[in-house]
């Protein structure tokens, strides 16, 4: 571990990785990356590297878990043992159980669960490398995987955190800022419906700072949403252009 830096933001307002307060980390999204899944996506968000896959809708196993009037969504968020500095045990931690639940609940509002009663979808998220903000990056990727599986959706879900580092409210905290900062507010948004589907917070914020953080996180979500749409379209436009060039 590096020594704890004195300041997380310098006099010019630059963060440790050189970003401005309202600047996102570089983001790369790719759709349809896994052959065996019904839908899949890969995200690189800063140093986070995460795969998401969707199977279904399909019959539930075991069958008694199915519901007569709606589709059941199961979600597993899991971190690879090598994804962090110290090896993480592959057994699911309490943190992973909680995150699996909140990620699922952040995506459920985007689905028409009543359309396919007695079925289920399984959502698998594997964090290959973690560097702060993995729940948000996971949601962004998982929503794309659902779209790629052709499952009807109300909107794509984009997620981004904001928080407080030193005395400043900033967007999209990376690991060190998350650990040493004052507060972290992960948020997920369906931008076209103006619906917040995930909101958590830890650390201490005044009501004013909280409002500022929510607005900043929503702005981040909107930027990420535009990239999600691009990534989805790219998968299909690539074929179109190839043909037109002939």
């Amino acid at each position: 571990m590096n020594e704890k830096p004195e300041k997380l933001i310098d006099k010019k307002g630059c963060r440790l990785d050189g970003r401005k307060a309202d600047e996102l980390r570089p983001l790369k999204l790719e759709v349809g990356v896994l052959a065996n899944a019904d839908g899949s996506a890969y995200i690189e968000h800063g140093k986070n590297k995460i795969l998401a896959a969707v199977f279904g809708p399909r019959e539930m196993h075991p069958k008694h878990l199915s519901l007569p009037d709606r589709m059941v969504i199961r979600c597993r968020y899991h971190m690879a043992p090598f994804s962090v500095q110290e090896r993480k045990s592959p057994a699911p931690s309490r943190r992973e159980v909680e995150l699996s639940k909140v990620i699922r609940e952040s995506l459920e509002p985007s689905l028409f669960v009543e359309l396919y009663p007695r079925t289920g979808i399984d959502l698998f998220i594997e964090v290959l490398q973690a560097d702060g903000g993995t729940r948000c990056a996971s949601i962004t990727a998982a929503s794309l995987a659902i779209a790629d599986a052709g499952i009807p959706m109300r909107d794509l879900v984009a997620a981004c955190a904001a928080g407080k580092v030193d005395d400043t409210v900033v967007v999209d905290l990376f690991d060190l800022e998350d650990k040493l900062g004052v507060a972290d507010v992960p948020l997920a948004l369906m931008p076209n419906l103006n619906a917040v589907t995930l909101l958590q917070m830890d650390g201490i914020l005044t009501p004013e700072e909280f409002e500022q953080a929510v607005n900043m996180a929503m702005e981040g979500c909107k930027k990420i949403y535009a990239m999600q749409k691009e990534a989805l379209k790219n998968k299909y436009m690539a074929i179109k252009e190839e043909v037109e060039e002939e």
């Binding site: 985007s110 779209a147 009807p152 959706m153 109300r154 909107d155 794509l156 369906m190 931008p191 076209n192 419906l193 999600q228 749409k229 989805l232 379209k233 299909y236 436009m237």
Partner: peptide, 8 residues
């Protein structure tokens, strides 16, 4: 036009 889920 190619549209994505949620597009108005």
């Amino acid at each position: 036009q190619v549209v994505t889920p949620g597009e108005l």
